[in-house]
Amino acid sequence: MEMLKIENLHAEIAGKEILKGINLSIEAGTVHAIMGPNGSGKSTLSNVLSGHPAYTVTQGKATFKGKDLLAMPTENRSHEGLFMSFQYPVEIPGVSMTNFMRTALNEKRRYLGLDPMSPTDFLKLMKQKRDLVKLDAKFMNRSVNEGFSGGEKKRNEIFQMAVLEPSLSILDETDSGLDIDALRIVAEGVNSLKTPETSALVITHYQRLLDYIKPDVVHVLYAGRIIRTAGPELALELEERGYDWLIKEFEDSNR
């Protein structure tokens, strides 16, 4: 089954075109990695797929599990199973993690026609998912991401992913800021959530993460286009050679 299909996607922000015709197709049960130099549009792609209001889609379409993704409001994309782990998770002072997660979870249940979760079931679920990424219970009474270290924020993203059980997870540089142990914990968390029905789109600059989360396909995004798609060996090659040769090949072929 096709999880996500992006066709000729163009998007701009503040009148500046950032995505210039993205084509990408992700099958259920597969892991895709996106690599590419800084500023090439990786986070833009994640944001556009999630429905960030600052971006305007000027052309193209995206189909998520057979539905028109771009027509849905952000929260419905989430309810339908799209999750984005933020490159820069946002602090929300005054909103406790518990309240935040309870609201998110129950909104999803409401969308699916289910009753709100009972308080005991909710607490059980929280504990189970916290254990998965080894997130201390004390974080639950704190405001969302407030005063969390960089690594704790990323761990919190995966915790939220575990709670919401998405079918497609976009992980935008979830590995940045993580120490070696945390990287392993987070990656194991992601892997344990993997099923034949779920997919992941992993954005990263480093092979490190891909050692744990093994991609089926690797893409290189450059200047708003996917300039190369290959198997996992491409990541290793990039680690060794950098992007220049690829960019040169791309520019030569477009001359």
Binding site: S50, G51, H52, P53, P73, T74, E75, R77, S78, H79, F83, M84, F86, P89, V90, I92, G94, V95, N99, F100, T103, A104, L105, E107, K108, Y111, V144, Q160, L164
Partner: peptide, 17 residues
């Protein structure tokens, strides 16, 4: 936007803030 991405509708997200 962060809250909406997690499935919290705009109205409720504004309320929480």
């Amino acid at each position: 936007f962060y809250m909406q991405q997690r499935g919290i509708p705009m109205k409720e997200a504004r309320m929480l803030l």
